[in-house]
Design a protein around this nucleic acid. Sequence first.
DNA 1: CCCCAGTCCTGCGGGC
DNA 2: TGCCCGCAGGACTGGG
Length: 287
Amino acid sequence: MPELPEVETMRRGILGIVGATVHAAARTPCRKQPISISPRIDRLNRRLQGQTIVDVERLGKRVVVVVESADRLIFEPRMTGLVLIDAPPTTEHLRFELQLEDSAIDRLLFWDRRGLGRIALLSPADYQSKLSDGSLGPDALSVDAIEFRSRFKNSRREIKVSLLDQAAIAGVGNLYASEILHLAGIHPQSRCHRLSVKQWGAIHTCMRAILQKAIQYEGSTLSDGTYRNALNESGSYQNEHQVYDRAGQPCRYCGQSIQRIVQAQRSTFFCARCQSRRGIRPQIEHG
DNA sequence: CCCCAGTCCTGCGGGC
DNA sequence: TGCCCGCAGGACTGGG
C-alpha cells in the first residue's frame, strides 16, 4: 500500500522522464474494470500531446508529473497502484501509458492490480484549488513541529486515527502510523488533545525519522509482493518493521508480545510496554 | 466536530 | 482437495 516512502521512491525512479516529450497518453488494453481517469482519455491526451515534461513532484501519496503548460498529471496509486518505467509485474493489470519521445525512456506506465487507483490531469487553477480547499494537509516531510502539533492538538480523536487523516497531514498511511508511534513510545489510542508538547515533538521527530529511513530502504514490499519501485524492484524496509504485521511476535526493543487492535476499521500494531499511555519511552532521544 | 459503515476492487489464504 | 468467504486498506460518501 504505497504511502509517502513508496511514492517518493516511485518519483525518484521516474525522474529520467524530465525533458521527454509526450507523444501520446492512452489507456492500455486491459480486461479489468477501467480505472478512473479525469478528464476523459481523449481530452487528456489532447492536452498532453507534444508537451515537454519539466518536473516530477510528490504530494503526499501522489506522484505529480508537471509539463511545460503547467498542467499536472497526478497519479494516485491507492492500494496497489505503481508508477513504472520498466516491465510491469503483469500485463493484464496495466492500465495507462504515456508514450514518450526525445528520451532514453520509452514510456511511463501506471499498473494497478485492484484498480482503485486514479489518474487526473489538473490545470494550474485546479491544482491550486486542490491545495487550498482543505482536503489535503501539508506534506509530512515539509511540515514543521509547530504546525504539526497545531493541526492535531485540539482534536479528541485517537492519535493513530488522526495520523491517517490526509486533510491533517499528507503522506502517512496505516503501516507507517504504527511504526512512528512505536518509535515515539506513544500509545495509539492516546487522545490528541491529551498529548503534551513534548509528546508532539516526539511524534514529529519520529515521523520524519521513520519516513526518511523508509525512503533510504526504498519503501516496504509486503508479503503480497505488490509494491515495486519504478524499475520493478522490491523495497527492503519491511525487514526493519518493529510492529507492523508482527502481532504475537516479540517486540524487538523490549521482548513483549506485539498486539494487534482495530481502529477505524484498520489494523494497528503496537507494544504495550514501549507504548504506555503515560509518556514517551525514556530511552529515545528527541530533537 | 467526529464516528461508523459501506463502496470501490482483486487476490490471497484460512477454514470447513 | 477444493471452494467460498473474508480480509487487506486509501479515499471517499452518506447518515447519525
